[in-house]
């Protein structure tokens, strides 16, 4: 250690973002039994309860059967739980003082959020993949390309909820943020028609449901199967909610880094 001059040191590239960090964060996430049960086991279980072996199971839903329709719904529900939970890890880490500790390292705040979103999306991807595997093994039928199209839409669309999770992670200071957010997600999934098709609900319910955050993604993800165009309302729904949640997260995040 020299004392006469400023020691020469390097700043890491990409704000400290690196693969070791991603790998350890992913391992941490998968080690959390509650996270895995909520985002992977539960949607598969719901699918197995409501999907195969029913009178309606083999009825046509367009380019596939009703079992496939329910499988897609549950995959989206799982991805939604996974990505929200992943984003909401921010709340836990703020509560533990980890975010503050990270400010004593080269990791930039932007790189930190990027890691959280990537990890959330990874878990979302696992959730979709596992639910689809369960579907393929238990009587879900779709045309070949529809499998891929719906899976990709389910996964990419769950970015809306990764943003929602990060936003909630900054708004709610609790370590048990998912206990608050979990029931809210079930309600949103219900309003989005993931549990019961909206066409079976009353007109007033449908009108309200159309402006809730799950509606757009639910319409988009089922479109390749049903063959019906999802319509602009669904696309606008996804875009607007993504903008609102990402904007909210950015706003709270900036306030948070300015405060401490």
């Amino acid at each position: 250690m020299t004392t006469a001059t400023i020691p020469q040191r390097r700043v890491p590239p990409l704000g400290g973002f690196n693969r070791t960090l991603l790998a350890l964060e992913l391992r941490r996430m998968l080690r959390n039994r509650r996270t895995v049960v909520f985002s992977v086991v539960m949607p598969v279980l719901f699918f197995l309860i409501f999907g195969p072996g029913k009178k309606y199971s083999d009825e046509s839903a367009g380019h596939g059967n009703v079992t496939a329709f329910i499988m897609i719904s549950m995959a989206v529900y799982g991805a939604m739980l996974a990505t929200t939970g992943g984003g909401a890890m921010v709340a836990v880490e703020r509560g533990l003082g980890w975010s503050r500790q990270l400010r004593l390292t080269p990791l930039t705040a932007g790189a930190y959020i990027a890691v959280k979103v990537l990890i959330a999306m990874s878990l979302g991807g696992i959730s979709v993949a596992v639910t689809y595997a369960a579907g393929a093994l238990s009587g879900a039928h779709m045309d070949g390309p529809v499998w891929v199209e719906t899976a990709v839409v389910a996964w990419v669309g769950s970015l809306v909820f990764a943003a929602f999770g990060v936003f909630m992670g900054y708004v709610l200071p609790s370590e048990n943020v998912m206990q608050v957010v979990g029931p809210a997600l079930a309600l949103l999934a219900f309003l989005g028609g993931l549990f019961v098709p909206l066409s079976q609900m009353g007109a007033a319910f449908q009108a309200v449901a159309k402006v809730t955050p799950m509606y757009g993604l639910s319409e988009l993800v089922h479109a390749p199967l049903t063959g019906q165009s999802p319509g602009w309302a669904a696309v606008a729904n996804v875009v607007v909610w993504l903008a609102l949640f990402a904007g909210g997260a950015a706003w709270r995040f900036r306030k948070d880094t300015a405060r401490v």
């Binding site: 890491p12 003082g97 980890w98 503050r100 500790q101």
Partner: peptide
């Protein structure tokens, strides 16, 4: 070295250090 907090409970000691090390250049 801060007074309290600043640790992730679900990592091991070695993992915490590997994670922290990965953030620095050297």
């Amino acid at each position: 070295v801060m007074q309290t907090g600043g640790l992730l409970k679900d990592l091991t000691v070695a993992e915490t250090l590997r994670l922290t090390a990965s953030l620095f250049s050297d």
